[in-house]
Amino acid sequence: MRQDTGRDTERSPGRDTGEDAAPPGRPPGGPSRLAARGLTLAYGDRTVVDGLDLDVPDGRVTAIVGPNACGKSTTLRALGRLLSPRRGTVLLDGRELARTPTRRIARSLGLLPQSPVAPEAITVADLVARGRRPHQRWWQQWSEADEAAVADAMARTRVADLAARPVDELSGGQRQRVWIAMALAQDTELLLLDEPTTYLDIAHQVEVLDLVRRLNHERGRTVVMVLHDLNQAARYADHLVAMREGRIAAQGPPAGTVTADLVREVFGLDSVVVPDPVTGSPLVVPGAPWRPPAESPTDPTAVTVSTRKAEQ
């Protein structure tokens, strides 16, 4: 079955890398370290992702968005080898992920799943230190390099002052930073995050997403994250992948990808897309909320005029 890759996209102002526009379904820049070819994923008899092709842009932040049950988290699990493909393959550095040794994968690719659960009473320092396991050998369980990597990860995520505290006593935002610190201590160039802002209030969501952008900018990490909030994805990602019913509907820089037509096609929502007043990235404004008939505008052109003003 042929994959629908959607529409041509343009480059995003403010994130211009000087690269030529890519064909639909593939980002610019040539082969990627992490890619999927003809990927079909299923749970039992239910197919969730069907014939998906995806190239993850190296050194960029990619956000995967789409409605519930569209296959975005399932795709991320397959990219992290937590789910075996029914058909097709995931490639890491040109090699099939399924045939790559686990230790080699763990040194190249870090994955933070949805709602991870820490062992009871484990401290922050001990949990972050678990990120170093792929680098250890039976004859060398801990080294100065491990110590330095853990210290650096905790400093970058601002959890060093929590080192002795049990993880289960922390706030949601603090716990999420600790889990990201563990993934960072793993010292991989590829980082997969499955809904890293779930259950967090708006301040902690911004804190986590700012951290992701900082890691990408300062350390050159390639990041793929699944997000529910389309506006956050447009604000923080360099490359956006919109999924619908197990396929890619469109992908590219947010400025050329997030349109009212796309929002209607993927989410079934009427909206107006305007520039974010802070970043200039696309900002999706849903249509007017339901109101009782007595409160509805008497002038049938009122909504149209309001919408036109928003689009200007």
Rank of each mutant, 00 (worst) to 15 (best):
T5G: 07
R7L: 11
R7S: 13
R7F: 09
E10R: 11
S12I: 08
D16K: 01
G18Q: 10
G25N: 10
P28T: 09
G30M: 08
P31Y: 11
S32K: 06
R33Y: 11
A35I: 00
A35S: 11
A35P: 02
A36G: 06
A36I: 12
G38I: 10
L39H: 01
T40M: 13
L41G: 04
Y43C: 06
R46Y: 02
T47G: 01
L54Q: 02
D55A: 15
A63L: 08
V65H: 02
N68W: 11
N68A: 10
K72N: 04
T75M: 10
L79Y: 02
R87N: 06
L91E: 07
G94L: 09
R107K: 14
L111T: 11
V117E: 15
V117R: 15
P119E: 05
T123L: 09
A125Q: 10
L127I: 04
A129K: 07
G131S: 06
G131M: 08
Q141G: 13
E144A: 13
A148Y: 00
D152Q: 13
R156H: 09
R158K: 15
V159Q: 03
A163P: 02
R165T: 04
R165E: 07
L170S: 04
Q174N: 07
Q174S: 07
Q176H: 05
W179C: 03
M182T: 00
A185E: 05
E189C: 12
L190W: 04
D194E: 05
P196Q: 08
T198C: 08
Y199H: 14
L200R: 04
V206W: 05
V212H: 06
L215H: 01
E218W: 00
H228A: 09
L230E: 02
V241G: 02
R244P: 03
R247M: 13
R247T: 15
R247E: 15
Q251R: 00
A255S: 15
D261L: 01
E265D: 12
V274D: 05
P275L: 14
P277M: 12
P277N: 09
W290N: 10
R291A: 10
P292L: 09
A294F: 14
E295M: 14
P300K: 07
V303M: 11
